[in-house]
Design a protein around this nucleic acid. Structure first.
Lengths: 189, 189
DNA sequence: ACACGAACTAGACACTGACAAGATTGCCGC
DNA sequence: GCGGCAATCTTGTCAGTGTCTAGTTCGTGT
């Protein structure tokens, strides 16, 4: 069974990650299998192991990538003069657009949560949120309130519990958040 | 290998459920295994199958039990003159006290979400929440806001993201919710 | 040009969920 | 009281999974 496929894949790591993200988006994190991913990518059953060591290692890489992406986006909206509420909508938008990442990130039992890459990106994202709440009279309460709301909204939306026909989730989250926090949108300078 | 253990367990179904809940609370839903549960309960490897048919069937039973418990509690606090915010704190209390149930309930990819017992209890719990929001000027927005907040709070707390030293989670959720919804606690009649 | 290490393959092992078929037991009608 | 019946549980088996070890192929720096 000799195929003309080259011995070295080129970027197997990325390919496996993408395949895993596809499967997770469709069947949830429980649906992935190392051997199945290897098949999808067209590589021997132990190929992916060399890049991730473990199944948990693969999920760790996904979680790290997710937290990094989220932190990037949060810092970006803050840098472009974003509101407190804007941070929230970015959070929701990320959770919906990168559903697979999001679903893994908050299941620490699936991966090595103490991995330095993960914890670093995690605190970076947390700091961005924390800083966004610093303007409010009671920052700690504001942080808990806002984070809980956007996280819950994103989670419930992704499980289909909040499904409304013909409703754009990010806009819904934004309008509800604005009514919750009674802030008017401040135009960016 | 004949033990003096009786051939019939007595209440194997309940025993397996409890063992599963223990394991889930400790290692998450991904950590359970039918054979492992059978070992813990002291029964042959295929014993549990007869009661749940599937691994998904076992999770389905847990989800159904969870939604039923939650619906019971919500209806109960509403019946005893509970506030809108009281409903929220019950939700959070349930999520923390019955962490294992809660973690399964909102992972529809793990079980048969279309099971009639599950959907029935699910809508019952949803109705209790919905009815709690009916007093507000914009009930739909209030429902989304409250449900998202309590759900997010519970989820984040259970993953350890919100961990504060020496803080009682239910009280924290209650105080934050009260500040969010600007309602004063109405004494039950 | 050549050795060295990284990337990948191949084989094996213990374990899992699921299925089939048989053993044991409580229980209901007679 | 007793015979059979259905529910409960056991034993055996099969394909598939994660992980380990040892081997193969290839790119790259010197």
């Amino acid at each position: 069974m000799t195929t003309d496929r080259p011995y070295h894949h080129g970027d197997l790591r990325r390919a496996v990650l993408d395949a895993a993200l596809d499967v997770i988006a469709e069947h949830g994190p429980a649906g992935i299998g190392l051997r199945d991913l290897a098949r999808r990518v067209g590589v021997s059953h132990a190929g992916p192991v060399h890049h991730f060591k473990d199944k948990a290692g693969l999920l760790t890489a996904i979680a790290a990538e997710g937290f990094t992406l989220l932190a990037d986006r949060l810092e970006e909206t803050k840098a472009s003069g974003g509101d407190f509420v804007d941070l929230g909508t970015t959070y929701v938008r990320f959770a919906i657009e990168h559903r697979a990442h999001f679903e893994v990130m908050f299941r620490p039992d699936l991966y090595h949560a103490d991995d330095p890459t993960v914890t670093a990106a995690n605190t970076r994202a947390g700091d961005a949120l924390r800083h966004g709440a610093s303007g409010h009279p009671d920052p700690e309460t504001a942080l808990v309130a806002a984070w809980s709301f956007v996280h819950g909204f994103a989670t419930l939306w992704n499980t289909g519990a909040l499904d409304r026909p013909g409703v754009e989730p990010v806009e819904l989250a934004g309008s509800v958040a604005r009514s919750l926090f009674r802030t008017t949108r401040q135009a960016p300078t």
